[in-house]
Design a protein around this nucleic acid. Structure first.
Ligand SMILES: [Mn+2]
Ligand SMILES: [Mn+2]
Ligand SMILES: [Mn+2]
Ligand SMILES: [Mn+2]
Lengths: 231, 231
DNA sequence: AGTAGTTTTTAGTCATGGCTAAATTGTAAA
DNA sequence: TTTACAATTTAGCCATGACTAAAAACTACT
């Protein structure tokens, strides 16, 4: 767990410390108020454990903690979160492209690997992939200096019927969901044609590689698309 | 740390548990009596910690422990050790071949990665490398079923002067030593010519790629070679 | 404002696995 | 066979970070 940020952080961070920071970052980025229950739900530990950990992170100046308030990251905490997130997404893409691991399995694997790769290995992976900008789900890969690119696109549920789109991001890491999409032929950068959009949040009819499929409204809301012609 | 051996092992093993088992395997394989001090020296924890851990491993039926006697692995313990060793050596080779990580850096990296890769990833790595038999240092890679190939060769210190040899194994993981050998052009499968072997365990003169170098006797003892013509 | 219900924190427990220091055991020389 | 010394084990301590249960604090409704 020796990292380049170790220079500014007293005690070394465990995998769980890192996962907490990453969770806070992701929840903040979603625009949610990171309350204790939101956080503990997300990470899968009890609320008491979350409070406990958040207090420790606050002592290390990685988060701002005020009792009964939402937590937030300090600049250092954000740097650490982004470093782990960079590891995670680089690893997902590497596993997928270099070792043909299916896109619905890379998340789990990266969840463990992200905590143990060195900076040198991170760099080697980035170089071997040609310094990519997005992971296999279209999530932006933070740069070494902590910039996070903005991903274009809008939910398929808000797209207009009778037009062709390209899938640029899937807002889910759920294995079963991704596997299902994969079976429909829907993976990153695939083109689809939006046949019909049922009103009142009804299902969506799409055509992928000449085959028509119906998608639940909630599913369509997770699929970010751009017009097919757009880069 | 979910592994395929989890079926037969009650509690999940931590990275350290796995490193202890691997250490015992390696020390046994070297022909050493695995006493508590040998083991604690090797793993870098205090003797008291080693006793403690060995007792726990013994309760899990992974080692045989009798007070004041050398420890040894049970069949299950050996299986676990070989699984981790397979991970380690596959990872070393993968990092070296696929990501160009120098042979003197792969050990450290693999030491952490070996504990967190899934069986699926292990298989994907093995497949992508064409099911290799040895790692970048010539150490044999155990098979999935736990067989360990026998590596040919004998120490350069016991070779005859005036003949050509090929380096097939280096019995060291020391970063500095490997880096030095690398600088001399000595890496796996490289050919060398043994010019002179000084008596009384004196230095050895070798020619590598047309350049002559003197090696300490202890260094030459770590280099396993075969006659240059031999496959 | 009072109260019910929810969220959060506190208090206290436990397992893990390192450590040091002291006690014990084993070995080998006198 | 005693004695010295090294190796090993035991005992006890500590940090970590999960947990449950209880207390406290917020929120929202009457
Ligand atoms: Mn993780
Ligand atoms: Mn992803
Ligand atoms: Mn290890
Ligand atoms: Mn090796």
């Amino acid at each position: 767990m020796t990292k380049n940020y170790s220079s500014e952080i007293a005690s070394p961070l465990s995998s769980n410390h890192e996962d907490y920071l990453k969770a806070i970052y992701i929840l903040e980025a979603r625009g949610e108020q990171v309350t204790n229950s939101v956080l503990s739900d997300y990470i899968g530990f009890t609320p008491a454990s979350a409070t406990n950990m958040v207090k420790k992170l606050s002592q290390m100046d990685l988060v701002i903690y005020r009792p009964h308030q939402a937590v937030s990251l300090t600049p250092t905490g954000r740097r650490v979160a982004l470093e782990i997130l960079r590891h995670h997404r680089l690893l997902e893409l590497f596993l997928h492209k270099t070792l043909d691991i299916p896109w619905d399995s890379v998340h789990e694997e990266a969840e463990r690997l992200e905590h143990v790769i060195s900076e040198a290995l991170e760099d080697a992976i980035a170089a071997s992939l040609g310094y990519p900008k997005v992971d296999p789900h279209g999530d932006p890969i933070p740069t070494k200096t902590g910039e996070v690119g903005h991903t274009p696109g809008h939910p398929l549920s808000q797209a207009k019927a009778g037009r062709a789109y390209r899938l640029v991001r899937v807002l889910s890491q759920e294995k079963e969901r991704l596997a299902y999409l994969g079976r429909l032929g829907l993976s990153l950068n695939v083109e689809l044609f939006l046949r019909e959009q049922a009103p009142f949040d009804g299902p969506v009819l799409v055509e992928v590689a000449g085959v028509e499929h119906a998608l639940a409204a909630e599913m369509a809301a997770l699929l970010q698309v751009v017009p097919a012609s757009a880069k």
